[in-house]
Amino acid sequence: MTGAITDLAETPPVVRRRWWGFLRWWPAAVVGLYVLVALVGPLLVDYDPVATGLTDRLLPPGATTHDGGVALLGTDPLGRDIFGQVVYGARTSVTIGALTVALSALVGVTVGVVAGYFGRAVDATLSRSVDILLAFPGIVLAIIVAGLFDRSITVVVIALALTGWIPFARMTRAMALTVRDREWVAAARVMGVPRRTIVTRHVLPFVLGPVVALAATDFGLVVLAEAGLSFLGIGLPPTSVSWGQTIATGKEYLSTAWWISAFPGLVLALLVVHVGLLGDQFNSYFHRTGRRGARSTSRRGSTGRGVEGSP
């Protein structure tokens, strides 16, 4: 024990920094792995959510199935492979996360920039609508929308993006508000540059960095929300694979077949944590570069989000 502490104390600072340097890439590597699994996993692993194999039901991890295969992470009550569900679930989660965040960001940034740059009545109208929506619990709205329609990926994406765009709008607006009074924007205006060009050339670039950071943290929350909806049985149709569904299946078997809920739960938790870490890294990165470049911009940028960048 004391030896270990001494060792640590004696570790040269150079090695420490290299250690940290390695850790910096850790979240990105993990998230990258998930994306990789989502992209190529289904090509390598064969899994059909509709087919069932009742003779192989509830097998523990590592057990041999009746046709000689190995159920790496066990099977569910219908004899379907949990490993397959984890891999295919990654594709579902990443797809839904990406689509929802893209949609949210698109709507949010558009509304935010328009409100922030044009100000006055436009701003007042848009901001108040945002405030009203903000008062509504996002997940409840998502449950209502997802519950009203037939289950499908489109419905889930829309249901989650319905309130997902709000943080983007708030942040973008705050930044556009400050950027539009900067000297170069004023100069462009005086020179008669069309508004659309000012917005795209002189305002948007300052917004994009923090938007990326926000998108990353949002991604994790969306993945979690989708799993939540599927857990409640109002998310994706049973023909698609979702971690949330698998976790829900396993909840009655927690004491007898823990692996059904445990593995998808674990991969879900890991993904959300690492996406969050990645988002924080983005956040602090843009924070720093922001300070170097457009100072006020970045300060507003970081206040637009509840999740602050780690130091």
Binding site: V50, A51, L78
Partner: peptide
């Protein structure tokens, strides 16, 4: 749910 999914699987077969 499980019963129905098993029936659907057999029909799909």
């Amino acid at each position: 749910r499980q019963f129905i999914q098993a029936v659907v699987a057999d029909l799909n077969k």
